[in-house]
Amino acid sequence: MDPMVSMYISQGIHGIAYGMILFLIASGLNIIFGMMGILNMAHTAFFMLAAYFCYVVVGITGNFWLGLVFAPLFTAVLGVVMERVFLRKAVGHMGELILTMGISFVIVAAIKKIWGTESLPLQMPEILSGMVNIVGVSYPVYRLFVIGLALVILVFMMLLLYRTRLGKIVRAAVSDRDMVNALGININMVFMFVFGVGTWMAGLAGVAIAPILTVFPGLADQVGMDAFIVVVTGGFGSLAGAFIVSIIFGLLSSYGVQFVSQFAPVLMVVFMAIVLAFRPNGLFGVKE
């Protein structure tokens, strides 16, 4: 195959893999916002925390897979604790915003205190570390794994939302949570579950990105800001919007670095500005 073509394809794979990670973070943010109206500023701190948890688990056990399973779970438990203990007492959306922002500062400070500010390497498992050759183009196995993982989670989320009673309750609560409550459904339990799933997804993204970018305290800002831009551009509360915009952003960032490297960091923001100029509620956002 033409080396140029194979380069385009492999850059594309890189972009999609990054887009998938953005999607994991953004969809968690989105589902929490859509249902509870809470813009969780601590979301990306949880994402980063999961990468550190994974670093610890891998350090103790030497097993990446255990990190992949347990680090997001620990993160989800912390997310649920935050929701139950603090967030429920916050008054109004401004209160929630300030509270979650404060929690995010606390998490980042704790991380710096415990693990320092160095970049900590996280070794990917042997089986995922090589390259694989498909029709003459070689791809890094790990990126393909990340794409596969995100797709599995996407399918799992779709089945959960559209095929189970719990998912239908969540979808109903997005449009009218008081009415759901009046039907005899304990909405607080549903919120807790949604918050747990949302932070769990952020945690998965944190673990998935750790072997690519290493683990460092700037992770939340670097990737987190992109995830927030995804949510705003795709439209608050829209999973489809988050998915499409994540992929676009992933590709923009990888081809951007390739072709217009000095402009690469602003491409997403420019894209967001253009979208919002024509659709102020985002690509798939609905008017309030």
Binding site: S175, M179, A182
Partner: peptide
């Protein structure tokens, strides 16, 4: 809370109907 009142055996049909439009 409303869910406990509902479980006690009271149903509520609100003025705006409030059906879930996507379901």
């Amino acid at each position: 809370p409303p869910y406990k009142v509902a479980r006690a055996g009271i149903g509520y049909v609100p003025e705006e109907r409030r059906i879930f439009p996507e379901l």
